[in-house]
């Protein structure tokens, strides 16, 4: 009985705190995306002519995101039947946008006029295999800023 209560408490904590944090994060992402949208970010570069510029530098933005207890439970339930795990889609979306923003913010601080050849990379660094393991996903965004 006490185990069930404990489980429900964690589920509620995950749901309320997780949703609150997600909303807060999205708000901050949207605000910062508006602030940085003047900087063109392009993911081609290798097969194009190298643009005229005097300086170039590499910028890397990274973030490690984790799911909350509620998301983990929902994804477990969904994985029994199959289908879209929407709760993880928003998590990865947040991570990717955050990583891009961190890269752009560094490039803006340096004085970049454009970021070229941007690449995104996702890797799982948690220990999902060990059952109740940690969900931790690292997302990095990197590209070349030019002046």
């Amino acid at each position: 009985m006490s185990e069930l209560l404990w489980f429900l408490a964690l589920l509620a904590l995950g749901y309320f705190a997780g949703t609150y944090l997600e909303k807060k994060h999205y708000k901050s992402i949207k605000k910062r995306e508006r602030q940085t949208c003047h900087l063109p970010t392009i993911n081609f570069g290798a097969k194009q002519e190298i643009p005229e510029a005097t300086n170039a530098a590499m910028f890397v933005g990274s973030v490690v995101v984790s799911a909350d207890y509620f998301k983990m439970f929902i994804s477990f339930v969904i994985s029994l039947f199959g289908g879209r795990i929407v709760v993880y889609e928003t998590l990865l979306d947040r991570g990717r946008r955050e990583a891009l923003l961190r890269m752009k913010e560094q490039a803006i601080a340096w004085g970049a006029t454009q970021i070229l050849n941007v690449r995104l990379e996702t890797s799982n660094i948690g220990d999902r295999d060990s059952g109740d393991g940690l969900v931790a996903i690292e997302i990095i965004a990197y590209g070349t800023g030019i002046q």
């Binding site: 964690l10 904590l13 995950g14 705190a17 997780g18 944090l21 997600e22 994060h25 890397v60 990274s62 973030v63 490690v64 995101v65 984790s66 799911a67 909350d68 207890y69 998301k71 998590l91 955050e98 660094i125 940690l134 969900v135 931790a136 690292e138 990095i140």
Partner: peptide, 23 residues
């Protein structure tokens, strides 16, 4: 710390820094 943070979700800052340093 990450295990605790995993209950509410969001960024695991300790890991972000660790990996940044390693990279």
């Amino acid at each position: 710390m990450a295990g605790l943070k995993n209950l509410v979700g969001g960024e695991l800052q300790g890991y972000t820094e660790l990996l940044q340093e390693a990279r």
